[in-house]
Structures are given as structure tokens and as C-alpha cells.
Amino acid sequence: MLFYCGFDTFLQFKQKGGKNNVFLQPLSDLILDQNDKVINAFIGWCSLFLQTGKGQVLYLGYSKCKNPNETGTIIDKNDLVVCSQVPKYIVNIECGAKETFLITIDLDLYKWTGFNFSKTFPTQISLNPDCQNSRDESEEKGSSAINNHVEASQFKVEQLCVGVEYSCLLTDDGRAYLFDITNGLLTTLLTNHKIISIGAGQEHILLLTEDGKVLSYGRGSRGQLGHNNLDNVLDTPAVTIEALDGIKCRSIAAGGWHSLALSETGDVYAWGWNESGQLGLSKDKVTMKATPIPLEISEDDSFMMISAGSRHSMAVSENGILFGWGWNKWGQLGLDPKTIVCCDSPQVIPVDEKVTNICCKFWSSLIETERDNNNV
């Protein structure tokens, strides 16, 4: 089962079939075809994409323009739209504040045009001179160096994260590049390390290496880079976060101006802005932390998943219990915003079934639970 909670002004979720006074809205309520079901969902600031079992992709959200459907009827903003041109085998739909992209199982890249997806690709790679050596210093001398210009056909897109100021593209060979979402230009190789995961916030990018190190790039205005200062990392390759040295991490999450990391032992580390308690600390006592600190939760809780929105955070324990903390003005924690606007310590979010997946973006959250046996 998939549930949505959070910002609803553009989605008008409750008017499309959602239930009043229910903070975790079941996405199955949006499907008119009783023989179909939602198998995946992707969220942005004012957009929601639903992938159904019959291969359809439905779009709900704000659009600047009106568009005629196949019958000539004008589709107005905030209507549930069936996308007519959708590639098969979707891996991810990455929704940014201004642009949205889709990645297929073949690692092809598509761009959202307003009502459908069209295939696109990065135009070129112009590398940062500081990264024009072989990726790993341990590589033997004489091994092929990175060229100044690499054709787009020489790689596939593994991941893409779209931030507000910076976006990042990860190729199938583990290289992470700054990505200009407007013109499709890859401008900077961020590191020589092999990267397995990336994340983007308002002003920063996080990168996770194959050996569990966490790197950061961008602006450090609120300590979100984790280097114990508010300095920017812009003119050099991404920098390893020294406070996490010796801690092998398996997951990262970039919030608006805060960051999370999950260690292999199930510990959560947080740093950056704490204006709404998104670090799990008292917002009245701590405004920010410029270096990672462990999340204070019961020693009995070990975590398997983390996610971060603009000013809220979530984590799932190994036994499927959902925790949330931070900003809840729009109900993005799945709690009643009339009684809880902020949580500055991790709270158990009441969910009937075991939670298996989460995704926080901007002012919203998606929560996936084990299948409801009554609907099998």
C-alpha cells in the first residue's frame, strides 16, 4: 500500500478522492479502474506521478498551461492526467522544483514536457581540471585518464538528483557530474571516487562512495556540508566529510538545508539547519550543526532507511516502524498539523502495517507498507 501526506494546495488530493481528516492518504483512492492498482509513486513540490499495474503513468499537480487531450477536450491545471507517451520499465521519476526527469531500466533519460515525457540526453561533458586524473590514485601509472570531452553516447544515466541550485547526474560507471538541467550540459566531474548514490538539496549535493564515504559539494550556509564550518565547496572537487571517517555509510539523504547519513550498523547521523527540529534536536536550543551527530533514539532501534524533505526527516527501523521529525505544517510527517507543527525529536508515526519504503521531498512524503492482505 502506498500513502501520501503533506502539501495539498496544488494536488488537491482530497478533492480527487482522498479522505478528509486522514493524514496518510491512500493513493489507491485515486485510481478509477478497480482492476488496476498503484505500484509506484513519485513526488515533487507541486506534482505527483503514479505508475499503475497496467503500465499507465498518471500525473496530478499544477501545470502552467492547458493542454488538449486526444479528444480535443481542454485539460485544466490540477486535473488527473493520463500520460500518453510513457517509456516502459520506469526506474525513477525525479521531480525538481522546475524540471522533472525519468530514468528507464535501460538507463535512458527522458524529460517531462508538461504532459508527457520526451527522450533527452546530456550534450557534453566539460571536466573540472582538478578532476582530470584517473579516478583512483591507486590505479597504475599509464592507465587511461579522463578526457576533457566525453560524448553522451559513452555512458548511461544511473541516477539523477535535481536540486534548486545544483543538480547531479550519476553514470553507470560511477562518475558523478554537475548537471545543468536547463541545457542538459554536464559541466564538472565532482570527484575521482566511484559513487553509488547521490542526493541534492536547496544548495548542496551529497555523494556516497562505494566504500561508504560521504562527500559534499555546494554552499554551506547552514552547515549542511558537514565540514564544521559555513564555507562553500565550489571551486574544488567534492570534499569527504571527516567527521564520518571510520563510519561506513550505506545511505544518504539531502534535505533542503540539512543532511542525513545511515551507517551500516543502522545508526542515523544528521547535520545542517535545525530551524524546525529536522536534526532531531531542540530547535530552541540548537539552530544548526555544521558537523554530523548521531540521532538520539533508543538503543534498541536500528534503522534500514532514511529520507529528508525541505525541513523534515524520516527513518524506518529494521522492524518496519516509521519515525519522523521536523516541520509538519502541511502534515508531511503524517501527523495532525493542527496539534503538531514541529517535532524536534523523533516520533513514532502511527501506521497500521509494517513500513517498507519512504520518500520525502519538499513538503511531502510517500510511505509504502506491506501489501494489505484484504486487497490481494
Rank of each mutant, 00 (worst) to 15 (best):
G277Q: 12
L262T: 03
K283H: 14
S282T: 12
W273G: 00
G266I: 06
E275N: 06
P294T: 08
G266T: 10
S263Q: 06
A270C: 13
L262Y: 04
Q278N: 13
E275M: 02
L279N: 14
A261P: 09
W273R: 13
A270I: 05
L262A: 10
L295R: 10
M288F: 14
S263M: 04
G272A: 03
L295Q: 07
K283D: 10
I293S: 14
K285R: 14
D267H: 05
S276A: 14
I297K: 08
G277A: 08
L279H: 15
S276G: 02
P292Q: 04
E275K: 05
Y269E: 01
I293Y: 10
N274D: 06
S276I: 01
G277L: 10
G277K: 09
V268Q: 04
E264I: 00
D284N: 15
Q278S: 09
V286N: 00
G280Q: 12
P294V: 09
K285T: 12
D284C: 10
Q278M: 10
A270T: 15
L281T: 07
L279Y: 14
G272F: 05
W271A: 03
V286W: 07
Y269S: 01
A261E: 08
S263W: 09
L295D: 02
Y269P: 05
A290M: 05
T265L: 01
E264A: 00
Q278A: 11
G277C: 14
L279K: 14
V268E: 02
S263T: 13
T265M: 04
S282Q: 08
Q278V: 02
E264T: 00
W273V: 00
V286C: 10
P292N: 03
G277R: 06
M288T: 12
G280D: 08
T287G: 04
I297R: 02
T265G: 02
K283Q: 14
K289R: 13
A270Q: 05
K289Q: 05
A290S: 15
T287S: 11
M288I: 06
W271H: 02
M288V: 06
W271N: 01
K285E: 14
L281N: 12
G266N: 09
G280M: 13
P294S: 04
I293A: 04
D267M: 04
G272P: 00
S276W: 11
A290V: 03
Q278P: 01
Y269K: 00
M288Q: 12
E296H: 13
K285W: 11
K285L: 12
A290Y: 07
D284A: 11
D284H: 12
G280H: 06
V268W: 01
L279D: 15
T291A: 13
A270H: 08
E264W: 00
S263V: 00
Q278K: 02
S276N: 14
T265V: 01
I297E: 02
A290E: 11
P294M: 08
E275T: 06
S276M: 11
P292I: 09
G280T: 06
W271T: 01
T287E: 12
S282W: 09
K285D: 11
N274C: 09
V286T: 13
D284T: 12
G280W: 15
M288E: 13
D284M: 09
G266R: 08
I297L: 13
L279Q: 15
Y269A: 02
T291C: 04
N274A: 09
D284Q: 15
E264D: 07
